[in-house]
Write a protein that binds this DNA or RNA. Structure first.
Lengths: 334, 334
DNA sequence: TTGAATTAGTAAAACGTTTTACTTTATTGC
DNA sequence: GCAATAAAGTAAAACGTTTTACTAATTCAA
């Protein structure tokens, strides 16, 4: 019933707790424990199915082999895919991931940080939101490895991995223009984070470079956690503007709402109306016609995040902060 | 730098550690600590930002306020949605969720169970796979609350929450037949779990009840973790059979592969060819025409799971096991 | 007035590890 | 033959809490 402790093993093997601990932690050689004792203890451990209590271990060592992952919403496929990739890669290095969603709420984000802190996670991987700068700053000051991905907070000085949102957005608009589009709309959110701003800047710059005047009526900023029905209503209104011949959606869920609108108002994507969505989604490939998307390099993002985190975890001194910007890929479908 | 401990607070307040502990845990009244001391200590705690070390707490109390959630794959939208719902609901009751994916690997599942065990999670919510019966049995014998959802293991005697897969499948086929379909295919997986078997049984029974002969050539069992390209190839082969006038896909990712095939071979869904997918997905609503689906009652499943778990956690004695079967909803789209 | 009960609080053990500093015995070098 | 070194192992402190059992001072009841 009661689970075994190291003491039980020590008693069974007739050695001290210390000895068992050394063996468990692979320090037997270095601490000169005899081959015979090692074997005996290992046999007993294997037979009894003893597993060290990680909580006691964490309490003593101060680290947990757990990395905390804070994202906006696990049910968004962008995040769930990246979470899965990060989980896989961390797992292979002996780290576990705990993840939790902020739902874009500053309060929830702060609570999560506190929860992770009091659980002594070894590192934090965060897709941050505005308003938690202070909390992050404290983590950094306490010497915790913190890495941002997908989004960055300009005021905070830490490593970041993300796609090149500015260029991806720029290229999307450029491709519209190359197709001869003149009235290009942008549906984005009012979340005030760098990556969203960059997408917006790329949109503006591409227009400007092509001598197209920026028209504020063509930009729709959706409030970040309103009901989808309201979003749909607003997009419908935007599209009532018949001049619009192309739309860039700045996130996949906005694009999905947008596609629902198109279906409702029976507007077809084709030669005279084009759409590009940011962040791929299974629905886009299946859609008829296929929806062109800016595909974020999920695999590379996850790879780099883990690489940077592990580097920090294994080095005593804090390595230089790095900003890894990975090009996104524009996938043209039809 | 170093984070505060209860001792620091005690020193600052000039009281004993015990007193601080009582106050933190809301036992001050009951332990007759004076109002003045309570206030003083609470003020110091608030000002210093002290947060109890949950690890030490867990070590001492033996519970963690964490519930472990084991699912097949967090990047599958069915699981990520349900995870999100469970997370939300648990969170409101003061429980945190740690989740991790098994990827349908028995080894990984066992490892996860061990990891959760050594981290002393208070309860386990599992979408189980065949092959982990023994491990689950051990958890149960040790008195851990364990609840299955989505899938059940017949040999294990514990609570379960899931949709009524048999009837959902039966109704889907019945609706095909009502539309006059005669050659109805089933694309399913070879995972040997109850819910998949039930979907298959529902298919067979509906055919039988309508006097249609079961034709084994119309049933395709996809190996559960093969490459998608292979799956697509196999579905393509199946659909080479021109007689087929309806297909039920037993999971959402199979349906997605199926839709990709339809797109490739340019086969249209319409009067003479119908499709129903199990488990809804954003892509199905957006698809033109809309894809009919069996919608699992995610909200209710999550609700019931949490309700049962919390009931077990709050009662000393283990409550009766319950099997909660919730009707699924067939959504006809076009 | 005294013994019991209440109030206000504390000391110390316990949870299960890791790790430091130590002991004892055997081996080596000269 | 003896000091120094190596080999094999252990006792006990520490990590930060909770909780049990205790003390001391005050109040109460008869």
């Amino acid at each position: 019933m009661k689970s075994l402790s190291i003491k039980d093993i020590a008693v069974k093997a007739n050695v001290s707790i210390t000895t068992v601990s050394f063996i468990i932690n692979g320090k037997a050689k270095e601490k000169s424990i005899s081959e015979a004792v090692i074997e005996k203890v290992e046999k007993i451990i294997a037979e009894s199915g003893y597993k060290p209590n990680q909580i006691a271990r964490s309490l003593r060592t101060g680290n947990s082999n757990i990395i905390g992952l804070i994202i906006e919403d696990i049910s968004n496929s962008f995040f769930s895919r990246i979470a899965r990739l990060i989980e896989d890669k961390a797992y292979k290095k002996g780290y576990k991931i705990i993840y939790s969603s902020t739902e874009n709420s500053v309060d929830k984000a702060k609570e999560l940080i506190n929860m992770f802190k009091s659980r002594k996670v070894d590192a934090y991987i965060i897709s941050p939101i505005k308003g938690i700068e202070e909390d992050i700053q404290m983590l950094l000051e306490d010497g915790n490895p913190v890495i941002f991905f997908d989004r960055n907070l300009p005021d905070i000085n830490t490593s970041y991995v993300g796609a090149d949102h500015f260029n991806a957005s720029y290229q999307s608009i450029q491709s519209f223009i190359d197709q001869g589009k003149k009235n290009i709309a942008l549906v984005t959110t009012d979340i005030n984070v760098e990556q969203i701003v960059e997408r917006y800047d790329g949109y503006k710059k591409a227009l400007e470079d092509n001598g197209i005047k920026y028209d504020e009526n063509l930009v729709l900023k959706i409030h970040f956690n309103q009901e989808e029905s309201e979003t749909i209503e607003q997009i419908k209104q935007l599209l009532a503007n018949k001049k619009i011949d192309a739309v860039l959606f700045a996130t996949n869920y906005l694009a999905i709402s947008g596609l629902k609108v198109l279906k409702q108002i029976n507007k077809k994507i084709g030669d005279d109306f084009a759409v590009i969505a940011y962040d791929d989604h299974e629905a886009f490939e299946l859609h008829t016609p296929g929806i062109s998307t800016v595909q974020q390099p999920l695999e590379e993002i996850a790879e780099n995040v883990i690489k940077l985190i592990l580097k920090q975890l294994s080095s005593k001194t804090k390595p230089e902060n790095q900003q890894v910007i990975i090009p996104a890929k524009l996938i043209i479908r039809d």
